[in-house]
Design a protein around this nucleic acid. Structure first.
Length: 130
RNA sequence: UGAGCAGGAUAAAUGGUCGCGGCUGGCAGGCCGAAAGGUGCCAGACGAGGAAAGUCCGGGCUUCACAGGGCAGGGAUGCCGGAUAACGUCCGGUGGAGGCGACUCUAAGGAAAGUGCAACAGAAAUGAACCGCCCGCGCUUUUUGGCGCGGGUAAGGGUGGAAGGGCAGUGUAAGAGACUACCGCCUCCCCGGCAACGGGGAGGGCAUAUGUAAACCCCAUCCGAAGCAAGGCCGCAAAGAAGCAUAUGGCUGCCCGUCAGCUUCAGGUAGGCCGCUUGAACCUGCCGGCGACGGCAGGUCUGGAUAGAUGACCAUUCACGACAUAACCCGGCUUAUCGUCCUGCUCAUGUA
């Protein structure tokens, strides 16, 4: 990923929990704490309540992939923790992806209109065609 | 063809586009760093399971403890022989139980060392007279009957999971291993087997006298503890020790001292590295063994993450995909599991 890495330290997680804002929907909970840096750090937490090891790995990968493919839509300078809720069990990629972007829009860290993305896409296509 | 028994294999496939992990090579020996090492880009091959699970046993490895021996206590195992590093595992046998059979199941030492427990029912549950049967005496009286007392009796009835060897006969007042045949049990002897045990013979009594030892217990054998968050190395910090210097600051104007200061040592926090994957390894062939397994030769390198990699999407096909993700490593056990395929065998039926 271009400007993102995973959140690793226990203390970093605690800092996001205590000082970050949180929103939730049916499948996910997201804590966000703004930093002054240029980089984003994303932590993913899936508890045993969600399912067994296979289910938890699957959910973790879907969340990570959802962020990776939509990285450019997010603002920079963010520490975020995404927590999977038991409802996330058995959901497919597109359901998890839309849940993640939904929470991003609530936090106002995602370009909400999608217009920019379309413009970027058009620019890219026009560049390729040239 | 149908029903069944035993063993084994496999665990959707192919292509495309993004992406992750360590490894190898390259980047006129990239970049950062004194070094250890870290890190960027490119290329390449590789990257979870049969149970990776439960963490129930057995080991390796690590640290701690420990002269040697005995007893007590605790735990585990429990027919015999073998395999193995070891095992509570596996293999081959023996006895018992089940099945027409292939075959399956079996914690299978000791209940004549002691203790405990055995509801209800039943006269009585461990050293048995309730009914009945038989004998004697007395009373009664139409009676070979009835009643009472004393005694004999475990054949019969009833209760129970179990009633003091079983069953048949002789015998007897009625009965009884009292005696006899067969079976059972116990002791001794012979034969076969390494053994468990099997076969045969002789003798003995049945007051040895039910079950339970996954009840205590007895006997035999074995057992130090904790675990990779083990443990080792490096090491910004804090507290610590020694030295240096009186050039600087504070106590204090000066000297000494002391706190700052500098150097070294020690220390070990944050963090990093090692342990960490070549191993009782796997594959093929030959040899030994009924087998578990062992030996020899050749070949292979096959995850090592650390907020934790092996994924996401698209397309096509099919039987439409179960259970379930390594966390130091091996050998087992147990449990979960959609299906598909293969091998050997048994029974029944049909055909020849």
């Amino acid at each position: 990923m271009i400007f993102s890495e995973s959140l690793k330290k226990y203390g970093d997680f605690q800092r996001v929990y205590s000082s970050g804002a949180s929103y939730a929907n049916k499948y996910l909970v997201m804590y966000v704490r703004r930093t002054d840096g240029e980089r984003n750090r994303i932590g993913i937490s899936v508890s045993r309540k969600v399912g067994n090891s296979v289910v938890r790995h699957r959910v973790t990968r879907l969340i990570r992939e959802s962020y990776r493919l939509n990285e450019l839509k997010f603002d920079r300078g963010i520490d975020a923790v995404v927590i999977a809720r038991p409802g996330a069990k058995g959901r497919n990629f597109f359901e998890i992806e839309s849940a993640l972007l939904h929470l991003g829009r609530i936090h106002r860290i995602v370009d909400n209109s999608g217009q920019k993305e379309v413009e970027k896409e058009n620019e890219r296509n026009s560049d390729l065609s040239d």
